[in-house]
Design a protein around this nucleic acid. Sequence first.
DNA 1: TAGTGAGAGGTTTTT
DNA 2: CCTCTCACTA
Length: 671
Amino acid sequence: MKKYVLKRNKGEGEKLYSIDYRAELNPQQYKAATATEGAYLVVAGAGTGKTRTLVFRVAYMVENKIPPGSILLLTFTRKAAQEMMRRASSILDERCKNVAGGTFHSFANLLLRKYALNIGLLPNFTIVDRTDAEEILQIIRTNLNLNKKERRFPNKSTLINIISLAINKSTSIKKIVSDCYPHYLGDYTEIMTVEEYYRRFKQEKQLLDYDDLLVYLKQLLESGEDVRKKISDKYRYIMVDEYQDTNRLQAEITVLLASGHHNVMAVGDDSQSIYSFRGANFKNIIDFPSFFPGTVIINLEQNYRSTRPILDMTNAIIEQAREKYPKKLFSNIEGDQKPVFIDGVDEKDQAAFVAQRILETRDEGVPLSHIAVLFRASWHANELELELRNANIPYVKYGGIKFAEAAHVKDTLAYLRVIHNPIDEIAWLRLLLLIDGIGPASAGTILKAVIANGGDYHQLISPAFEKRKNSSELKRLHHLFSSMKNKQEPLSAKMESVLDYYTPIFEKKYDDFHRRKMDLESLLHISERYLKLEHFLSDIALEPPDKFQAGIEPTDLEDEKLVLSTVHSAKGLEWHTVFILHLVEGYFPSTQSLDEPEDIEEERRLFYVAATRAQKNLYLIAPEITSRGSYWASYRSSPFAFSEPSRFLNEIPNFRELTEVGVITFEDPLS
DNA sequence: TAGTGAGAGGTTTTT
DNA sequence: CCTCTCACTA
């Protein structure tokens, strides 16, 4: 008898990969990248090559014949997902582009458009942003007569905070009110009523706020075994990035998504959790193994980003945190430049120093785009922006007012929203109020007629309104909608019709319309990239700031520009040289966080995130606050609190050894 | 009922 | 400093 042995070509090491994973990754990274089946928790400190690991993991899976479409990459921003897919494609091939990915919210949007009917939604629902949500609450508040001065009922932004926190933390409104707003406990029943009206309002008009996307996704996944199985089967390999910034609801969704296979890798760093104000809970990381029994935990601790002196500093910052997973990040990158600490300057000098130092750094050969200035709140950079404009230093600013939130952009979008979802009452209301002589009352009457007819814009020229003094404007509006009826017409053509209609209103409404005009032009420009109105509108609502940032042309992004950014928007990024402004009590940590120890801890992590962005140079600046703007705040705490350097610096025991003190002197005017 | 002006109160971060 | 609210006027 003759024996035949079949060679197996499975098994580690024997397989032919086009990438040498062992050489490219360190042992922990390798372990994470090549572990495909099962549940994994990767605790990845700042700069430890987390993204790189995920990118190689995608490539590894694709090389193992896993269909890219069955890999789901949930990240904090869509940009992060796209960047990863791009990098995976560049190390392997185009197949990696077909990986599914995005934020929880955009993923929810995708599924809900498809399965809307399963849970009683229409697929053409509209996504409303925070401003719209507040607008709705304002209407409800007024209707319920809760807006009287003597009532001191929570205002619209507090209301949305309460409602949203309850949802994101998967808890009751009562708990949120008693935990965060105990002084409103007496208004608890009315808050519940408002919430109910709010929910009904949205439901009737097919409006979904950000939270609804998650709520309905969860509902969809729970609506039936068959749908859940279908979805779970499609996305067999799930990766969740920045897991420390997910909330309870997102964790529950993750569990449901993975119900069929339990192939989940969550990646995160508890020390970098900075989104608790919107319900994120870094304890999700700690709880992960209990959701997925048998979870394997992998720690990434070698830092590839920062030099040793910088890492010593950042380790010292997070060392002071009350509560964290013990971690010991180390770096092999040599460097002799300690972080530089500057104090004793005023805000003007701070700006002048930063601008000057930026120019010098550029002269040393560091491109502007590798330099960043970070700050706690957008307005902290105002002074610096002036200085930069004077010095002709080009920059982009991230964070702060977003493009889609600017009033004139929202005006423009309202017309398109009505086309897409004719019963979008918030959009209708907005565009009606734009007409001269129409206030809340007339708008209400017209709106009623329109909505009663399922959003029929022909009501605008109904005989009932013919005798109004602004009937010609209504005709003009009617004409606009008729002209956009043609479905074949490209989106940008519709946009142009809208702008034609809107321009006279726009120029009358805003004194500074010249400055704002640019935004409308770039909106038109952006619309040219879309075929479907629906995609355009969802993207504007869901896309992270960078592409739709006020004042940023899409073409700006490739240019050599200095980066100004809030710390929140700087997450996940890195620069050769980083300046952190306003390391002063009341600014960083911000005044609002001073009451609660938990909030202080979050600010500390925020500072940690900021400092860990630096590769080679880190400047920590603690100016003395002299401007009048801080006057109001200084009487709330002690009068001198605002010139006190941040506690996050003072609390570091060997701060002086870890830093080099920068002393600023002024040039002799005669020399 | 729409539009305006004075006055008061709050001032972050984002999908 | 900016937004929101209220009260007043046309």
